[in-house]
Design a protein around this nucleic acid. Structure first.
Lengths: 349, 349
DNA sequence: TATTAGCACTCCCTTGTTTTGAGTGCTAAC
DNA sequence: GTTAGCACTCAAAACAAGGGAGTGCTAATA
């Protein structure tokens, strides 16, 4: 993934210039423009020669004969890799991300998506961290009325799950107490994926109260714990894609916005990102590289954030291939640390 | 709102034919077409005369000279009013709305929106019922650890609210118990808007435990109860608008889809709908009639559903003016009763 | 008197043609 | 190695012409 050394310094400069110019204008860029744009002081003819080479090497191409050049996916890739290396030594400095503290995780993430979208003018998404490795801090069953019990479960990071359990017959107060004791002493501190069905079965026996109700309630508890909160994803600025002509023809717009509405595809994206994390915690998918076909004409930049204890989530930006990678990557890094700051200031036990 | 009697029977038939034809094709409809389409057996010339009249009266218009006619907002309005009257005597019969029972209100509503969208090919929204007149069924504070208390509140219709309350100093077990007793005995059965700040203040005194912690906790409880769950709105099929050329130019599409993403405008729509409810529980806003400017080129059809105890929510469909009003209204009615069936089968106390 | 046939007219849309201009590749000169 | 010059290409814009759907009006008809 390092910079391809087969390119001369000059070619690199020219390529970079082509890309940057194209990022700004969205138009194919020609040799004349470049000969002014760069500080190389080369004539357009020379540039043309170099461009011909770059085209042969696959970094740029012409949308049609006699048009200027446009960076190819490969060209973008090289460019982004260069950026990555430069950034490496830069100190990440905190910026004003305007993230207000909010007590509900949900709110924070939704707002994060919003801030990101308005900062970048691209479409954004933020996935809630996955709970499976989170640990149970507290569990309680309470009688609401004769036929209803409410179960409340608090996980690390103050994630709360709850559900009403409908019971046929009433559970006596003592039994409820017993059950609560049992649940808390047994499950407390365990991670979600440690709480297996086998464990629940054992609990049923240990409960010592042999009634259908208890079994039913325990089953319900297991369900609450395990029901994958189907990957909550918060999005914002989906309509930003209308700002980029290359994405806003009906067909593409329809597809991309659908993806944002349905969220299933975004979920796939998140899964993929979390699976193949790289050193920076930032990943860039250019065009076809993205794991979702809908994004084949977009670039997707994702960052992973961590709320401690292995609870990871993803922040993502979806925009045109000619996105401002530099700014985007910087903004993502900032947000990453903002989230860190918000959630890791309460030291985890 | 009754049928304008100044229109002859024949004009009405022609207007209806124009509209129905336009609903199907989306193209301006001309006199020739009509002379075949209607069972009136009139020549195109006669039809032309009638159309000229209808145009003078403002029910139809030409997008340009020598084009066919298109219904105006006023024309649609008349048409819809006619439909309403016809439907009046029809028996609403249950259809297969495929709504699965789900225990979380949230899920049900999201699914309702989805079903609706796929049934109609329009963009849809469903607002969660507003809680302010809902009653409190159960409240409980539990100690999670030294510094955290989780508050759980169950409202009618099994709506659950919760929040972690951070406390500086630990609250003793007995005090927590006392507090729970007090809260339950006092607040149980009260509606949200009955629980005023004054009441909370009185509770603080009654608690008899004079400590900052108790005050803080009670304040937090009040906040949880009152924090307007900022009108949750579930949407689906926003991208359906791409199916209608008259709405899918960049400008309009951008605006409409934004409205669906931001949801604020939809919330306004809901508020308006709930405020001015009419006899059928179904309302139709045509073009400029909608309380939101974004929808000026759309028609919005809304229905109000009730979960008992004054908890009302709204179902809405947003599409082109040439939407299939008949089908839409029927579908809405069906869904309305589906929701009724799901939520009012557990008889409310 | 209401309906219809006929006709001239309007104007959008489609299709085809021309022009323009940005950009290229190549070659020959510097 | 670099550059000026030139012929060439091709997309997009500008223009022109024809077709066609639809209209309004008038005069004939039932």
């Amino acid at each position: 993934m390092a910079v391809d050394t087969s390119l001369s310094e000059r070619k690199l400069i020219i390529l970079k210039a082509i890309i940057q110019n194209y990022l700004e204008t969205g138009e194919p860029v020609g040799s004349r423009t470049l000969s002014k744009y760069t500080e190389l002081n080369l004539s357009s003819a020379t540039i043309r020669n170099e461009m011909a080479d770059l085209e042969d090497l696959g970094y740029i191409f012409q949308p049609h004969t006699s048009a200027g050049r446009i960076p190819s996916d490969q060209g973008y890739r090289l460019y982004v890799d260069m950026l990555m290396e430069e950034k490496e030594q830069e100190i990440t400095q905190r910026e004003n991300a305007m993230l207000e503290k909010a007590d509900k995780v949900e709110k924070v993430l939704q707002q994060a998506a919003k801030v990101l979208a308005s900062n970048t003018n691209y479409a954004t998404m933020v996935s809630a961290p996955i709970n499976s490795r989170n640990t149970l801090k507290f569990i309680q069953l309470s009688q609401v009325d004769e036929e209803q019990i409410v179960a409340v479960i608090v996980l690390g990071g103050n994630v709360i799950k709850n559900k009403i359990i409908e019971v046929g017959e009433t559970l006596s107060n003592e039994n409820l107490l017993k059950l609560n004791m049992l649940l808390n002493t047994t499950l407390n501190g365990m991670s979600i994926d440690q709480i297996t069905l086998g464990l629940i079965a054992r609990l049923k026996e240990q409960a010592g109260i042999h009634s259908e109700v208890v079994e039913h309630v325990l089953d319900a508890v297991a369900e609450i714990i395990h029901v994958e909160d189907d990957m909550k994803i918060y999005t914002s600025g989906a309509t930003n894609i209308f700002k980029y002509p290359e994405l806003s023809d009906k067909q593409s717009a329809q597809e991309i916005i659908s993806a944002f509405e349905e969220k299933q595809q975004l979920a796939d994206l998140v899964t993929e990102t979390l699976a193949s994390e790289n050193s920076h915690g930032i990943q860039v998918y250019i065009g076809h590289e993205a794991p979702v076909k809908t994004m084949k004409d977009c670039s997707v930049v994702t960052a992973t954030y961590e709320l401690g204890e292995g609870m990871k989530g993803t922040i993502g930006i979806i925009g045109p291939k000619r996105m401002d990678y530099e700014h985007v990557m910087k903004t993502l890094k900032t947000l990453q640390s903002e989230l860190d700051a918000i959630y890791n200031k309460n030291p985890k036990e």
